[in-house]
Amino acid sequence: MHGSASSGWLLVALCAATGAYCLLRMRSRVEEQRRSAGGEALMGFGMAVMAVPAAVFTPPSWAWPAYAVVFGAAALHALWAARASARHLHHLVGAGAMVYMAAAMSASGGHGHGGSGVPLLTGALLLYFAGYVLVTGVRLVPVPAVAEPGGPAGWGDRPELARACRLSMGMAMVAMLLTM
């Protein structure tokens, strides 16, 4: 993705930290946390790699199609999981956005900026993720604590941290789409 190097590195750090926390969530006692954490970790690390400033590292030409294949597989997995729960539709949209950005970068030879994407689709994705960020941010408003059955929650079991990670990935997606 393109933009200033300092904002690119901040985006890399944010996405990598989010991916690392999602890996911790894979050890959760709560099955639903474990189930979604793997896909979110893939998304966080994938976004971190895509956000590395182009001035520092320009991926080889085969990297963008490889990203599209990896996130296309993640989109198929999310589509399959959405049969059981509509919560996975967000994962489907996120993986689809990653495929879209990888395809746009591949088409531009990895050097495109502005106009490399389809403006209507970029705009629709921007609206979706901006709305997602606003809704998720509102859900982070503090509520009274509820005692956890079986003792205090571990780091991987804290729903407010999972929401904060989803919020940070949503904001990162908005930032990446703005550079298209």
Score class of each variant (00 low, 15 high):
23 L>Q: 03
41 A>W: 09
40 E>P: 01
96 G>D: 08
28 S>V: 09
56 V>R: 07
67 Y>A: 08
23 L>H: 02
102 A>H: 04
91 H>D: 14
46 G>A: 04
87 R>D: 11
98 M>H: 11
92 L>P: 04
66 A>R: 09
83 R>Q: 07
51 A>M: 09
96 G>N: 06
64 W>F: 03
63 A>S: 06
64 W>A: 02
24 L>T: 11
96 G>C: 14
93 V>A: 12
39 G>E: 14
86 A>G: 11
47 M>E: 06
60 P>H: 09
71 F>I: 01
57 F>M: 14
94 G>V: 08
84 A>I: 04
97 A>N: 00
83 R>A: 09
49 V>N: 04
30 V>L: 12
59 P>T: 14
40 E>W: 13
23 L>D: 01
29 R>M: 02
21 Y>I: 08
41 A>F: 06
86 A>C: 04
85 S>C: 07
50 M>E: 03
85 S>L: 03
77 H>G: 07
73 A>T: 12
91 H>S: 14
88 H>W: 15
47 M>T: 07
55 A>W: 09
77 H>R: 14
88 H>Y: 13
84 A>L: 06
79 L>D: 05
44 G>N: 03
80 W>A: 15
30 V>R: 08
50 M>G: 02
77 H>T: 10
77 H>E: 09
87 R>Y: 08
70 V>S: 07
45 F>L: 07
52 V>L: 14
72 G>V: 03
36 S>Q: 12
68 A>R: 00
37 A>T: 12
57 F>R: 13
69 V>G: 03
73 A>W: 10
48 A>R: 10
76 L>E: 04
99 V>K: 00
99 V>N: 00
52 V>N: 07
67 Y>V: 14
89 L>H: 02
53 P>A: 09
29 R>E: 13
63 A>E: 00
70 V>R: 05
58 T>A: 15
50 M>N: 01
22 C>L: 10
93 V>W: 04
59 P>Y: 15
51 A>T: 10
45 F>C: 00
100 Y>R: 05
52 V>E: 11
68 A>E: 00
58 T>N: 14
82 A>L: 10
88 H>K: 01
62 W>Q: 10
79 L>S: 12
42 L>V: 13
62 W>H: 10
82 A>E: 01
47 M>A: 12
85 S>Y: 03
32 E>G: 13
92 L>G: 04
100 Y>V: 07
45 F>M: 02
67 Y>R: 02
99 V>M: 02
97 A>D: 00
79 L>M: 14
62 W>C: 09
39 G>C: 13
31 E>D: 14
80 W>D: 15
27 R>D: 08
88 H>F: 12
59 P>S: 14
100 Y>T: 05
46 G>P: 03
21 Y>L: 15
66 A>C: 11
82 A>D: 00
94 G>E: 06
47 M>I: 06
35 R>T: 13
28 S>G: 09
66 A>I: 06
53 P>H: 07
29 R>L: 11
39 G>H: 10
90 H>T: 15
53 P>K: 07
69 V>S: 02
94 G>N: 05
81 A>G: 03
94 G>P: 05
40 E>H: 15
55 A>K: 13
89 L>T: 13
31 E>M: 12
59 P>D: 09
60 P>F: 10
91 H>T: 12
30 V>W: 04
92 L>F: 10
60 P>G: 12
87 R>H: 08
67 Y>S: 08
21 Y>F: 15
69 V>M: 05
64 W>G: 00
45 F>V: 03
72 G>L: 01
72 G>M: 03
54 A>P: 03
43 M>T: 05
25 R>W: 11
98 M>K: 02
